[in-house]
């Protein structure tokens, strides 16, 4: 069962989420939908994100790979230079620096696509609500027995409208 409640006040959304978590709903079962980012107080609905870590990892990995690539390929191709060094730390370091940036970009974007369920959509239990300017939708995925409690929390917090949706339809 999927409950979608519409709110127009951010404090109401915060109250609703707090009471839902107090009822025992986990963060994975609650999802908010809005056309602008909703700033909830810290601790209400915290989402962990690993994008920063992936950015750093991407930077390190890409830079290492690129530098190793240049090093080994420069030495494998029998380039004649008459003594001009093939691989110098300073000049290849510039390419390494750029590849740090490129790797950070790649890590950030890939992790964003993954965490946001963009490009390759994540399976959803029901359709997301159509966004309305000024409104925030709170969607709760609850087993049939608990839907009444959830609806109660949402109405008490000040929901303007509540829709029900049977999963699988």
């Amino acid at each position: 069962m999927l409950l979608t409640a519409e709110f127009v006040e951010t404090e109401a959304v915060s109250k609703a989420v707090t009471s839902l978590t107090a009822e025992g709903f986990s963060g994975d079962e609650i999802e908010l939908f809005s056309d602008v980012p909703v700033q909830l107080p810290p601790g209400v609905l915290d989402r962990r994100s690993r994008i920063s870590l992936m950015a750093v990892l991407g930077a390190v990995v890409n830079a290492s790979l690129a530098t190793a690539f240049i090093y080994f390929t420069q030495h494998n191709y029998p380039l004649v230079t008459g003594g001009m060094p093939i691989f110098t730390g300073w000049s290849i370091g510039i390419v390494t620096g750029e590849m740090v940036g490129a790797g950070a970009v790649a890590g950030t974007i890939l992790m964003l696509l993954w965490e946001g369920g963009l490009l390759i959509p994540r399976k959803r239990s029901g359709p997301p609500p159509a966004l309305k300017p000024g409104s925030v939708f709170v969607q709760v995925s609850c087993p049939d027995g608990r839907s009444v409690r959830a609806a109660g929390c949402l109405t008490k917090a000040g929901a303007v409208d509540i829709q029900e949706h049977r999963e699988g339809r």
Binding site: E31, L32, F33, S34, D35, P37, V38, L45, R47, S49, I51, M111, L112, E115, G116, G117, L118, P128, L131
Partner: peptide
């Protein structure tokens, strides 16, 4: 879809 996870990310 405008979910809070997506906004956060």
């Amino acid at each position: 879809v405008g979910s809070d996870r997506q906004w956060h990310a």
